[in-house]
Every structure is written in C-alpha cells, then in structure tokens.
C-alpha cells in the first residue's frame, strides 16, 4: 500500500520557487494497478520519485506498507527500497554488464550467495521470456527487450511494489502493448502493487484499475478507470479521454446536421456497461414505426466492460420518436438530441 498525505515538493531554481507537488493526497491499495496521468511538468515524475525517496518531499508524508518514509534513517530507507522495484523510461541498464549481471545487480548488492543469485536470475529471465539473452549486452537488445530486462531487474528482490516511470513511452505501440501485458501478468501472478505514471491514456486504458489525473502538482480527478473514462469531470481528463476515445462528431456529420437544421432527428446514445450488450437498435426498429440510420459510432472496452456511444438518426413521426425516447430512458440508457456543433 502506498499513501501520500498532503505531499508537497518545492524546488529552488535560480532563486525562484517551483512547486512541483502541491499537496497530494492519494491512496493506492495493495494489488492495484494505479495509473497517474498528466502532461509533462505536471509533477508526476516527482510524485513517483517520492515513493522511494529518489526525491525527498518538502513536506507531507509518504507511507509505504505502513512505514512513514521521511521519518526513517537512510539505512532503513535502503532496506525499504529493496521492497520497491522501479522501471524507467530509458531502461537505465548498465551497458558495461551482461544481461545476467544487470538482472543480478540488486541481489549482488544484497550480497546473496552466488548459487542463489544464479537460480533467481535464470528464473526471472525465463519469466520475461529472454532466457537466451543472459550473456548478451544491453546494446545488443531491442527497446522492448531492454525494458523486459529492466522489469526482470526490478523484480529480482521480490518487491511488493513496482514503480513504472513512463515505462513504455520510449517504445513503439506494439512493444508497448506486450510490455503492458507483462506488467499485467506480474500484477496477477505476484499480486504486486503497480504504480504507473504516463502521459499516454492508452496505457491507462489497457491495464490500470484506477487512475488519477495530475495537473499543476495537484490531483484534479481520481477514480476507477471506468468512471473517469465514461464521465470525465475536468477538461484535462476530457482531453486525455478523447485522445483514445474519439467522441467528437466528425466534421461531415456536423455539416449534415447544420444543413438540415431541425428537419432531422439526430441523437447520441451512450452505452455504458451492461447496456452496451443489449440489442437496443434492432429492438427499437421492431417495436416502433421508425427507421434508424447509424451515422457514427465508437465502442470500446474498458476493464472488460464495453463502453461507447452511437450517433443515430431516427426517421419517423414526432410522436413515434417521443415514444422511442421514453422507452430508451426507461431502460436507463442515456440518450440526447444532438444539435449542430454540439459534441
């Protein structure tokens, strides 16, 4: 478990004070995959570095598994760090050492017996699928392979927490996806709490359980990934959501609506969770005397639950359409008329 209490970090830079973190309160439960998303400079890097005191907070508390870190001695913090693995954007492997030696490093530092180290390292390399690369050097590996080694290294001491600092930001989309699947597997198999910071909403969508949006050193929105994606409250969160889920009306549709102002009945139906599984449109077409024209749609899956929206045109008498709306509302599905330029 990780908990931040009124966490503040102020940098002095050229006589000016920069407030990187402005009173963060956040709780990350054991076994969760928690994502923190923000633009660069939002403070997410400082936040993750406070979890293992790579950066010391100016004030406030960081509680990791019941220990308040800032009150511990340097030696005690070193011990706690062995329980916190960290994966970096640029991998940060030692180029002068083999893959084996890189993964073994945390165990070497802990002065474990050689035999034990060897066994553990081979086990880890197999887990990340690179057992054949033990004697290679990092510069002989691809980005994705390097990150797998970085992950194996972070897991060497069997930590209960894994910190991912933009772990996929330097990778292409396909590699990103495979690394994310690996993180998910780690979370499932070892019940490790994973804290991810990223600026990519797709990362959050793909593996996180919960998400917090950070801006100006503050958490401006927080909740389950499903809630934040289906109903983002702040503009920043909305912007992030729209980077992966296009719910803006395409220009062509907007034009169409403008041209036929008032003549057409165009609606946006939001599908959330169970409602997405219902054959709503065909039901409407059968039950009522209307024709349905699907103009635009976007359905995706979040945390195993379908989610999305459809833009449809109903062709029929006003009366019939009113009945349709009443029927849809009864089913607790959100439906709204679309006006030109509205989105």
């Amino acid at each position: 478990m990780i908990e931040f209490q009124n966490l503040k970090k102020v940098y002095e830079s050229g006589g000016q004070q920069v407030h990187a973190l402005n009173g963060i309160d956040l709780k990350i439960n054991k076994g969760e995959i928690f994502g923190v998303i923000g633009f660069s400079g939002a403070g997410k890097s400082s936040l993750i570095r406070c979890v293992n005191l790579l950066e010391r907070p100016t004030s406030g508390k960081v509680i990791v598994d019941g220990h308040e870190l800032t009150s511990l001695s340097v030696k005690e913090v070193r011990e706690i760090k062995k329980n916190i693995g960290m994966v970096f954007q640029h991998f940060n492997l030692l180029n002068s050492k083999t893959v084996f030696a890189n993964v073994a490093m945390p165990l070497t530092l802990a002065k474990l017996p050689k035999e034990q180290i060897k066994k553990r390292v081979l086990e880890l390399l197999e887990f990340v699928g690179l057992e054949d690369k033990a004697d290679n050097y990092p510069d002989q590996l691809s980005g994705g392979q390097k990150q797998r080694i970085g992950i194996a290294r972070a897991l060497a001491t069997q930590p209960s927490i894994l910190l991912c600092d933009e772990a996929t930001s330097a990778l292409d989309p396909q590699t990103t996806s495979s690394i994310l699947q690996l993180l998910k597997k780690i979370n499932k198999e070892y019940n490790i709490t994973i804290l991810i910071i990223t600026h990519e909403m797709s990362v959050i969508r793909e593996i996180c359980d919960k998400v917090a949006v950070i801006e100006g050193g503050e958490i401006i929105e927080e909740g389950s990934v499903f809630d934040v994606f289906s109903s983002p409250k702040t503009q920043t969160a909305k912007n992030f959501v729209s980077t992966v889920m296009n719910d803006q009306l395409p220009d062509s549709i907007n034009e169409l609506i403008q041209k036929h102002k008032g003549k057409q009945k165009i609606f946006r139906i939001n599908f959330v969770g169970n409602s997405a599984g219902q054959p709503l449109l065909s039901e409407l077409a059968k039950k009522f005397d209307i024709d349905i024209n699907v103009l635009f749609g976007n359905i995706t899956e979040l945390q195993g639950t379908p989610f999305g929206n459809l833009i449809v045109e109903f062709q029929g008498t006003d009366e019939e359409i009113k009945k349709v709306l009443a029927y849809v509302n009864e089913k607790n599905i959100s439906i709204k008329e679309v006006i030109a330029h509205a989105s």
Binding site: I84, M86, L94, T157
Partner: peptide, 20 residues
Amino acid sequence: GVLEAAEAMGATPWQVISKF
C-alpha cells in the same frame, strides 16, 4: 539514469561508485 537506478535499488554510496 543508471545512478538513479542504483539508488532505487538501495545501493550504498560506495556500491554506487564501485558497481555502477
């Protein structure tokens, strides 16, 4: 970044110098 990784692993200053 390599030194940051060393610190994240809980390396002592001497270990950071000699092993990284």
